[in-house]
Amino acid sequence: MNAPLLEIKRLSKAFGRVIAASNIDLTIDPGVLTSIIGPNGAGKSTLINMLSGSLPVDSGRILFQGADITHLPIHHRVRMGLCRSFQVVNIFPDLTVFDNIQIPVLAVHKRARRLFRPVAREAGVREEVSQVLDRVGLAAEAQTVASALSHGDQRLLEVGIALAVRPRLLFLDEPTAGMNPVERVRVLENIRGLSEEGKTTFVIVEHDMDIVFSLSDRVVVLHHGVIIGDGTTEDIQKSARVREVYLGEEVMT
């Protein structure tokens, strides 16, 4: 294993008296598909928001590929290769599916600043957009306005936009929420395939334990802003502490 992809050191965040993260230490290695689980209000969303740059941290440091990104703005982190998808659909509703993917691809190709050259002439960009669309299975809908897609397809598009920036580390916030079983299988296979390709490392926040235990190499359990479990799926299933926290919340398989 080479150097860690992401290193979090003593990260803390509080909203008034509610502690959302308390001295979290966490390391994520490349290629290890990690899931973050925890009961509602455990601080999962806060953690992702801090790591992706939406929320300022109270204290602690975030290192990405060795560089301190604790105070970098979102778009810098994205350019370095750290991106996320959202729990609620977060797309460009009035643009076509193709344009939805094209914007991040333009950014990756450093073409987004071109002022006077028609976007239609960016052949390399268009090709890559088509590849991303194929990958998430939306090629047939390329010219549809995004808001006209079904909810499941919008979620696919959401994941597609996040993938289009060619991230090295991608946080997926409940990637399969609101999907039908067919779409769900497609997304999960995508994630597994991409993860095995090794270009992108995935960190998934999920409620669905089936997904978590079938997909993950490693599971991190968060509770009241503290990591109370960290290990392989078997470790977590056996952990007494985790069972205690989840008791009454959800039945563990």
């Binding site: 778009h75 994205v78 350019r79 991106c83 977060n90 460009f92 914007i103 991040p104 920036v165």
Partner: peptide, 14 residues
């Protein structure tokens, strides 16, 4: 037009 539609997402496009 992406900014008009969803400025947050533009940030996450880098």
């Amino acid at each position: 037009s992406g900014i008009r539609e969803n400025d947050r997402r533009i940030e996450f496009a880098g």
